[in-house]
């Protein structure tokens, strides 16, 4: 244990304040429509934090995050109809199983790097898309796949959060815990190993760091977060559709993580905002939500060419400059 583990940085403080604000204010002011939109944004914030963390800390591009969310959602639904465990137990098992899936995917993939790693994860996302479309999500049937013909059986949601308002708070707490998990890792030994690997794999190896282990570990954390967020999404809707988990959505999620700014918590929040809230705003204004794609695309090119830290990075830099001026 080191004392740095609990040190509060200005960015961390801002993050906790923001989470508290979201927890207290958002659910009480949002109407039913925005509750639904914000809940799915909060779920995706968690998944994005995983993919952004891999990109920022290790330079790895994973294009399969939404596919892994689907795995988490699948397991949550399957367990819901299999046993009478509470939702939370199913969610934790789903997150852990997704983490194992992440490891399985990572071990062969980690021999590859850069573009090839991105492409092999894209192949995995393409494969998962087909599996979801073929076997569908469990709806209360028998057998391994748990799919029955006809209508969906009722889903047992969390008993801690039965109303949409409470469920939004629930997801916000879960997403905050996800960020804290990443931050805690970053401050302990794995974080130092990752920093070294990011700088130079050769140096890391020479220093006795088990590169494969720590890369796999990072993959596992990202998968854990994806699995939990998929389970939370299932919990909010009571069912899932394969259309949510296409490979193209994984690509989009990564692109938005870059637009938001992969190095900061704010980046994941902005990315999720762009992914789910912006189309809803356009829809409310009567603007065709297809135009959101144009905004995503321009944002991505802008981020890659001129703002490597994304929108989140620019906002953070603005605040840092302000506080320096004051001091």
């Amino acid at each position: 244990m080191n004392k740095d583990l609990f040190r509060l940085t200005p960015s961390g403080l801002a993050g906790l304040v923001f989470a508290a604000f979201c927890f207290v204010v958002l659910p009480s002011v949002a109407g039913s429509y925005w509750l639904a939109i914000l809940t799915s944004s909060a779920c995706f914030t968690m998944a994005i934090s995983g993919v952004a963390f891999m990109h920022a800390r290790l330079g790895m591009v994973s294009l399969t995050q939404v596919g892994l969310m689907g795995v988490g959602g699948w397991v949550t639904l399957r367990l819901n109809y299999l046993w009478d465990f509470p939702f939370e137990v199913n969610l934790v098992i789903a997150a852990l199983l997704t983490m194992i899936c992440g490891w399985v995917l990572a071990l062969p993939a980690l021999r590859l790097r850069g573009l090839y790693l991105a492409l092999v994860t894209l192949m995995a996302a393409g494969g998962l898309e087909i599996l979801f479309a073929t076997y569908q999500f469990p709806n209360g049937g028998e057998g391994f796949w748990g799919v029955k013909i006809g209508s969906t059986e009722p889903f047992r949601g969390s008993i801690l959060a039965t109303s949409p308002t409470a469920y939004l708070r629930y997801v916000i707490v879960a997403a905050t815990l996800g960020f804290l998990l990443i931050e805690a890792h970053r401050r302990m030994f794995p974080g130092r190993a990752w920093a070294l690997i990011r700088r130079s794999e050769a140096a890391a190896m020479a220093a006795g760091v088990n590169v494969t282990l720590y890369k796999t570990w990072a993959f596992g954390i990202a998968a854990l977060l994806a699995g939990a967020s998929g389970g939370l999404l299932a919990g909010s809707l009571g069912l899932l559709d394969d259309g949510t988990f296409r490979a193209s959505e994984s690509i989009m999620l990564f692109a938005l993580a870059v637009v938001g700014g992969a190095r900061f918590w704010l980046g994941a929040v902005i990315a999720a905002f762009l992914y789910r809230v912006l189309p809803a705003i356009l829809n409310t204004w009567g603007v065709d939500s297809d135009l959101a794609y144009v905004i995503f695309g321009v944002g991505l090119l802008h981020a890659l060419i001129t703002a490597p830290d994304g929108i989140g990075g620019q906002i953070m830099a603005l605040f840092r400059r302000k506080s320096q001026e004051q001091s």
């Binding site: 591009v61 850069g114 573009l115 991105a118 690509i251 989009m252 990564f254 692109a255 870059v258 065709d288 297809d290 135009l291 959101a292 794609y293 144009v294 905004i295 995503f296 695309g297 321009v298 944002g299 991505l300 090119l301 890659l304 060419i305």
Partner: peptide
């Protein structure tokens, strides 16, 4: 190379957005 590849995704999204619009 991975950054160059991801950038083309941005362009793809722009085209797709306009075409679907």
């Amino acid at each position: 190379t991975v950054v160059k590849a991801v950038a083309t995704l941005g362009f793809a999204l722009i085209i797709l957005g306009f075409v679907s619009f």
